[in-house]
Write a protein that binds this DNA or RNA. Structure first.
Ligand code: FES
Ligand code: FES
Lengths: 147, 147
DNA sequence: GAGTTTGTAGACCATTTTAGTCGACAATAG
DNA sequence: CTATTGTCGACTAAAATGGTCTACAAACTC
């Protein structure tokens, strides 16, 4: 039940954008430096986030990326879905046909419960929630370095 | 958030043992055939389960493996732990020192929530629960083939 | 419109993990 | 002793992961 670095890096990057939302777009370079993510890897994480409508980008000088919506409208389940795919721990939870006996398989029921539990957590957490938790933890922090 | 085949195969194998618990040990060969698991792979799954005290084994003719305890005393979290390691989605949840800022990291808090949610499901499900769910689903099934 | 600054797309690659095989061996029933 | 079972370790093929690099496209500045 591991999460790849994609979701970890991606969430950190989005949190960074959420914190400085009013300051306009941030460059990928800034995000990469501040969040300790390899720049050329971060590019690849942005692609699905942009395609998924979570982030918008502006090219050219003074460009960068920013959240496409306000942070309280972005739930983590969407972020994780875009970066890692479904949260189903085994494929047949989403797609019963891959196992021929899935109709009567009780282990599949457990894996479904697992997916439901994970989604419940991720659906109930928005980027704004993270920003607020962070304010509570380090109210006087000036810049947000590596989380 | 994927589960490897180890946990899937392992759980199926244990469920098989739970269903036929009173019949004494089953051979690995039987389990492998019935649950569609490569025999030589199944051997490797049994090792940690035996070491972890979930399964006991008997060598020699008429030998095999059986549950080491009654099925209602075996929770799935133990099984998954033995076969996959911790359910923590990122390492710093279990071991905060791997990230230097873990004290103030809010994304880590989310991953902790995730682990908690997963563990809650797995701790509240025993092999006996699975057996009962199965009886309810296919009360007249004679043998348990591939789940 | 030349030049610089940004993001975009794709091919490419090294390492690690996963899933599995194989062969030798150990225990034990008969 | 021998057949039958489990045990252990080395090995391997294939996939996933985590990343780099090059070429390019858009947009702003002068
Ligand atoms: S249906 Fe897919 S594991 Fe049983
Ligand atoms: S502390 Fe490990 S990801 Fe933030």
């Amino acid at each position: 039940m591991k999460l790849s670095t994609r979701a970890q890096y991606g969430t950190r990057a989005l949190l960074y954008l959420a914190v400085r939302q009013e300051k306009g777009p941030a460059t990928l370079k800034d995000i990469a430096r501040s969040q300790q993510i390899p720049l050329s890897y971060l590019e690849h994480l942005m692609t699905p986030l942009i395609a998924g409508g979570v982030v918008r980008s502006v090219r050219g000088p003074r460009g960068g990326v920013a959240l496409a919506r306000s942070s309280d409208k972005i739930k983590l389940d969407e972020v994780v879905q875009l970066l890692e795919g479904s949260s189903a721990p085994v494929e047949c939870v989403d797609n019963p046909n891959v196992c021929d006996r899935s109709r009567s398989c009780v282990t599949r029921d457990v894996w479904s419960d697992l997916k439901r539990a994970v989604d419940t957590v991720l659906e109930s957490t928005t980027l704004q929630d993270l920003v607020e938790r962070q304010k509570r933890k380090q109210p006087s922090e000036q810049e947000m370095y590596y989380i």
